[in-house]
Design a binder for these strands. Structure first.
Length: 157
DNA sequence: GCCAACGTTGGC
DNA sequence: GCCAACGTTGGC
């Protein structure tokens, strides 16, 4: 069954529009260095899963577009690169510890802001809104995904 | 820049 | 295995 995810990116690094402008509208989602988020990518994500593309650490945090998972998970090569900020001295190519995955951008829309999301009773259980949540990848229910991509994204236009 | 919340590390 | 110290996230 198709699953749904919210993935946080800093738009200064990669925005939804950057992803839409990339070859095949597809970017490699690398740099995840949290085991729980890694496990979602490595163990649960499947091609064609739906993705809410979230902009974080920016002026207007919120959901800025929709994407889909476009590959199987594969080792994040930045973990082996001494010059990368994502270098992990404990990772070895024979035993990769961190995972990347390809994400294909489908659509951008005016940001559905964090306060918009918090104001929706329908979304009160949304994982990304839970108190203290810091995970950069969180599961989204099919109802939440549908509500956001059909109703909220239209309202924002 | 502040700071709450949470994850990781490492001494014991 | 405990837990204090430290580092990171991310909204504000």
């Amino acid at each position: 069954m198709r699953q749904y995810w919210l993935m946080k990116s800093e738009p200064d690094e990669v925005s939804i529009d950057d992803a839409l402008a990339a070859p095949k509208r597809t970017i490699s989602w690398f740099g995840v260095r949290n085991y729980q988020a890694r496990n979602f990518m490595r163990d649960l994500m499947k091609v064609d899963d739906g993705v809410l593309f979230y902009h974080s650490s920016c002026a207007v945090p919120g959901i800025a577009g929709v994407a889909r998972i476009a590959s199987a998970p594969y080792p994040d090569t930045t973990q082996f690169d001494k010059k990368s900020p994502y270098f992990d001295p404990k990772a070895a190519p024979s035993e990769p510890r961190w995972t990347a995955i390809d994400v294909e951008a489908l659509e951008s829309f005016p940001v559905i802001t964090l306060s918009d999301l918090k104001a929706e009773p329908t979304l009160e259980k949304m994982r990304v809104l839970a108190r203290g949540n810091r995970l950069s990848i969180t599961p989204v229910t099919s109802d939440e995904f549908r509500f956001i991509t059909t109703r909220l994204s239209k309202r924002a236009r």
